[in-house]
Amino acid sequence: MSLVRDMITIAAVSAGAFFFLAGTVGLLRFPDTLTRLHALTKADNLGLGLVVLGLLPQAGGLRDGLKLVSIWLLGLLAGATVSQLIARAARHGESTR
């Protein structure tokens, strides 16, 4: 049973780490602000989500598990809100500058 749990953890955390890599590379390599934003928020939230998924089997109890899931939900909300706000700010900045 412990082996199965560890397998899930390794698989999910590795996938999460890959998405962090993708997000960072996107942020550094994509040509303009809006595409960079796209790379960042999508990959970022998937990365956090997969890390949370991977840590769930290692969580101490139900309460820790619930906290982990709420962290991911808060992360999703933050990513969605911030990408909207920054995209608007960037668009207005470009049209005026």
């Binding site: 808060l74 909300l77 809100t81 706000l85």
Partner: peptide, 13 residues
């Protein structure tokens, strides 16, 4: 808007 939406959703949490 987005900000008002967040300000309604986040404070209870």
């Amino acid at each position: 808007g987005v900000l008002a939406f967040l300000a309604r959703l986040l404070p209870p949490v």
